[in-house]
Each structure stands twice: as C-alpha cells, then as structure tokens.
Write a protein that binds this DNA or RNA. Structure first.
Lengths: 142, 142
DNA sequence: GGTACAAGCTTCAGCAGGTAGAGGTTCAAG
DNA sequence: CTTGAACCTCTACCTGCTGAAGCTTGTACC
C-alpha cells in the first residue's frame, strides 16, 4: 500500500496533480485508510506512470483517456492506439515547423540589432512591420 | 475614429480579445462615444498590430508589455529589447529540441506498430515502459 | 422621423492542465 | 505519547483567450 507522496516521488508528479487526475477521472478513485488518506496499489503506480509518459510525449489528457481505455481491452486491434499516436505525431511535426519559422524570424531580429537606440531598433521595427509574415493567422502559442 | 470591429478585422484579432487586452492594461483605455462604444485612433491600431505580431512570434503578454514600454522611450538603448528577443529565441530553440525528441519517439512507436491486438501493441508498450527516456522531467506541454 | 438590425456593451463562466495556499487532520517514528 | 512531516479539503489563481446571455447603440434605409 503506497501513500500518495510515494507515487508522487516515483513518477515525478506533484501530489496535487495526482489528486487532480483522480478528480477528472483519469486515475481511479483510490482506497482510503480509516483516517481518510489515499492508498495505492502497484497498478495505480503503473497507470500514473503511463499517464506521465504520455504527457511527456505531448498527448492531451483526452488522448490519454482514450489510450487507457484501449489498454484495458487487450483483445482488440491496436489500430486505434496507432491512429492516436499518428495524430500526435502529425501535431508535433506541425509545431516543429511553425517554431522553426519563428526561430528564423527571431534570429533575423536579434542579428540585425545593432545595440543602438530604441528609435532605430530592428527588433521593435520588425515587430511593428511584421505584416503577414506568418501566413497562418491562428498559429499562436504553439 | 475606428470602431472596435474595424480594429478587429484589420488585425485579425477577435473583438473580445481587444477588450481583454484593454482590461489587462496592454491596450490603453479607448475613448467612448456618448453611448459608450469604444472609438480608436490609428495609433491604437498600430499598437494592437504590434501586440499581435509579437504574439505570433510567441512572446508572452508580459514580454510584450516590456517591449511596448521600451518602444515608448525612443532615446534609450535597445539592448533590453534585444535581450527579450534573445530570451524568446532561446526558448523557441529549446522547444524545437524537445519536440524533435518527441517526434523521434512517436515515430518509433508508430513504425513498430504491427496493427495486431492491443495485447502486443508497441504504442501502448512504449508508453508503459518509457522510463526516463526524456531526461527533462518537467518538459511537458511545450 | 421611424424602424430594423448589425454591432456594440457588460458580466460571468469556462477551456487546458495544472499550481498555490489556508487551515485543519492523520500517520508513524522515536 | 508526542512531534512533525505528510496528508486532507476547498478555494482561488495562472495564461490567453473564447463564448454566451441579455441588453443598448449606431446607422442605413424608407
């Protein structure tokens, strides 16, 4: 029987976060001691590790929910799991592409900066006049 | 005198978002008509465009606040603006690196998947056993 | 001048994916 | 039996918006 702090240390997940996962139904409701503290089995540790690994690979909590559901039905074809992973891969590739465009632009800004006065600052100038340089209007915060 | 909808269309920013920027003090408080509707000058349009371009380059609202402050004091050295941009560049580069590691891992998962049953699914297996493959424990949601 | 209706207004709530803190209780080692 | 670290719940907050409810204003047309 593991306490929540043990799970936390073993998986590098904050205690609060584990409780949060329980709250949103991603972790099963843990058993409790007489005093009301959560106690876990090894399988809960495995499940949490699975969640964390998936998060590290950028899967959304919703995708992880799907993956966990799949993993619970071992007889089925894994085509669904594969397609979730594929979807994720595509997303990651898109993000990389966008970030590389940003990087290029930022580099241009930084390189062109001559350290003079703000009035002639290339950085600020580029931010002002940066018309449509990124075609994807909604590509913010990626 | 421009209405909020005009600013919205010209910059590709939602009306709500413009009001939000005013609320958090990123845009100046707009003048109002007798009936209480916001009216803007060209300079407000420029400021909003600056904000949007900066957001497209991934700057946080806080960084943008700093950049706007700098831009308002034209006599100063632009070293600060440069360092904000540098900081942003470093962040973007780190994100790209991490995403590339993710991509590699996802690709491995997807390629190894043989489409058989969930019980032997490589995707799920890798998610389960993905021990410390990403050294940076806090590198989530990049 | 009257009317229709698009566009504006405020306020509140919610999204992801957690994190932080207050204020109180329990567990386990010594 | 005491101490104190670890646990509990609950609420609020973070970023960067977005949507909706319910109401008012501006303007174009007749």
């Amino acid at each position: 029987m593991l306490a929540i702090g043990t799970l936390s240390k073993k998986t590098g997940t904050k205690v609060q976060t584990i409780r949060y996962y329980e709250q949103i139904g991603l972790m099963n409701e843990a058993g409790r001691t007489a005093g009301g503290q959560r106690r876990y089995f090894e399988k809960d540790l495995d499940r949490l590790a699975f969640i964390r690994h998936s998060r590290q690979l950028g899967f959304s909590l919703e995708s992880i929910r799907e993956l966990l559901d799949l993993a619970d039905r071992p007889g089925q074809s894994c085509a669904d799991a594969d397609s979730i992973a594929q979807r994720q891969l595509v997303q990651v590739e898109q993000r990389i592409k966008r970030l590389q465009a940003l990087k290029k632009e930022l580099k241009r800004m930084v390189v062109d900066c001559n350290g003079e006065s703000v009035a002639h600052c290339k950085v600020l100038e580029i931010l002002r006049d940066h018309d449509e340089c990124l075609t994807d209007h909604n590509a913010i915060g990626s």
